[in-house]
Each structure stands twice: as structure tokens, then as C-alpha cells.
């Protein structure tokens, strides 16, 4: 886990390549399925009321631990709330943390990488050393210490997960800038007397951005999992409605008899990561990034 692991992404890449070679149309079917899944998750995040009509804050001990099917689609947890309803209402927190943490990591990381790659010299060395040090903390661990240090609110969780993704973005951007900087059109921009700012933002950045954009899609999936891990460990925000990670840990004591409490959030998390990876790989093809 170099900072943040994106193994799922590499798996997706190989799978789609193979499908393409064997000429199976499963490839586009997978893509549409991913889009459909993410559309559902997005809808749940934006207007949960459409997908789940009951109130996720109302506890009803009389309905506790009901198996899936009987009355509720995915069963109920120990306080009588419907697992399906909780999953729908947990989507917002997952998406908000996934998107904002990635945005933060991408902004900070890309700026660091851009500065290091463009200026080179001692600036590059200082930033490089700093990134190396951040990388000495495996992803989850880094997020864990930061979350512990800042305290468990949603904003802090976003920062913690976001900081954990900074090194990855910084490295990708730095490498990309180093490649682009050597191109003739950059030389041309410079010899035309353009200011460094104009050279960087008009000529280098647009041509160096694609890999970071692709990495951002993957990073959303990773961020959702890291955030869920922290929630599972009890370091997430303490909210009235549990997020996916908390719901998984709520179900842990009931694994023996009420498997559905942990199983459905687990499946939801997994499907979301797969969908995000597939979409990321599709984007990689469209942007022609290797």
C-alpha cells in the first residue's frame, strides 16, 4: 500500500483488455452497469427520500433483527431500522467524503508535484523528501493518525483521507510535468517570452493533467474504503444515522444469526469500488493515458 492502494484499478484494466480481445460485448455491458450503479448511489446521496421512504432515525425495537424479505427488503438491524434505508442514507456521507477527500488530495498533491517538477533543484528535493516521509506511513495508518489527532468529525475525516492521497497525486503530477517540460512547445512558449505562470498554466498543466484525472476516479473508490475503514474502527464521525462502515461494525456482534446487517453494506462498498474502477479505466481509454 504505497500511500493509497489502487490494486482494483489494475485488475479492471487487465479484465477489460481481455474482454476486448475475446470480442465479448460484456465490456460495454459492464460499463453501463457501473454507470447505473453510480447513478443509484448518486441519487441516494442527493435525495435519499426517493429511494427510502421511512425515517432512518426512528428506532423500533419491536422490529429488531428481522431477516430480509419479510416486510423489509434487506432486513433490519438490532434497533429495528431497515438496513436498506440505512444504506440509502449512508450514501451521502460516502460520496461526500470520497469526492471531497479526492479533490483535496488532488489539489494539494498536484500543486506540490507541479512546483517540484517545474522548478526542480532544491525545491524538488525538499518536496520529494516530504512526500517520501508521508509515504513511510501506509495509507490507512496515515489517515488513522490524522483522524485521531484532529478528532472525529466529517470535515476532519475528509482531511485525513485527503492527506493520505496527497503523495500519490504529487508523484504522478511531478513525473508528468518532467515529461511535458522537455517538449518543444514548452521551449517555444519560454522563448516567446511568456511568463513562468503562463507557461505553467497554459502549456504545461493542461498537457500534464490527464493521468491525475484518471487517478482521481480511482482515488474516489480508495477514499470511500479508507473512510469506511476508519468508521468501522470507530474513528468516524458520530452521527445519528450510521454510515456504511459503521453499519458493518454494528452487524459484527450479530454475524452468527443476523448476517444481513454486515453483508449488505459490505456488498454495497465492494460494488461501488468496482464501479468506480471500471469507470476510471474507461476514462483512461478516452483520455488516452497509459
Amino acid at each position: 500500500m504505497a500511500a493509497v492502494d489502487a490494486a482494483a484499478f489494475t485488475e479492471v484494466r487487465g479484465l477489460r483488455r481481455q474482454l476486448r480481445r475475446t470480442g465479448v460485448s460484456v465490456n460495454s455491458a459492464l460499463l453501463y452497469a457501473s454507470l447505473a450503479w453510480m447513478a443509484i448511489v448518486a441519487l441516494a446521496a442527493l435525495i435519499p427520500g426517493v429511494l427510502a421512504t421511512d425515517d432512518p432515525t426512528v428506532l423500533d425495537p419491536a422490529r429488531a433483527l428481522q431477516p430480509p424479505g419479510a416486510g423489509t427488503l434487506l432486513g433490519t438491524e438490532q434497533y429495528g431500522r431497515s438496513v436498506a434505508t440505512l444504506l440509502v442514507h449512508g450514501a451521502r456521507s460516502a460520496m461526500v467524503i470520497g469526492l471531497l477527500a479526492t479533490t483535496f488530495g488532488m489539489l494539494v498533491g498536484s500543486v506540490l508535484g507541479l512546483i517540484a517538477g517545474y522548478l526542480g533543484g532544491w525545491v524538488d528535493m525538499v518536496i520529494g523528501r516530504f512526500i517520501d516521509m508521508l509515504m513511510c506511513f501506509p495509507g490507512v495508518l496515515l489517515a488513522l493518525i490524522i483522524a485521531a489527532a484532529l478528532g472525529s468529525t466529517t470535515t476532519n475525516l475528509i482531511l485525513a483521507v485527503g492527506i493520505a492521497t496527497v503523495p500519490g497525486f504529487a508523484r504522478v503530477m511531478r513525473g508528468q510535468v518532467l515529461t511535458v517540460r522537455g517538449h518543444l512547445y514548452v521551449e517555444a512558449a519560454r522563448s516567446n517570452g511568456f511568463s513562468p505562470a503562463r507557461t505553467v498554466f497554459r502549456h504545461i498543466l493542461p498537457n500534464a493533467l490527464a493521468p491525475s484525472v484518471v487517478m482521481a476516479t480511482v482515488s474516489i473508490g480508495v477514499a470511500i474504503v479508507v473512510a469506511a475503514s476508519l468508521s468501522f474502527l470507530g474513528l468516524g464521525p458520530r452521527t445519528e444515522v450510521p454510515d456504511w462502515g459503521q453499519l458493518l461494525s454494528l452487524g459484527q456482534p450479530y454475524l452468527a444469526n443476523s448476517w444481513w446487517i454486515s453483508t449488505f453494506p459490505g456488498i454495497t462498498l465492494t460494488l461501488t469500488v468496482i464501479a468506480v474502477s471500471l469507470l476510471g479505466d474507461w476514462l483512461r481509454d478516452r483520455l488516452d493515458v497509459e
Binding site: A7, A8, E11, L15, V225, G245, L269, T270, I274, S277
Partner: peptide, 12 residues
């Protein structure tokens, strides 16, 4: 299976 495996959080 590798894809499913790598997409599953370890606690799950």
C-alpha cells in the same frame, strides 16, 4: 476474483 478481492475492504 482478483478484481472482487481487491475491491473488498479487508474488514469486510
Amino acid at each position: 476474483t482478483s478484481l472482487i478481492n481487491t475491491s473488498m475492504p479487508s474488514f469486510w
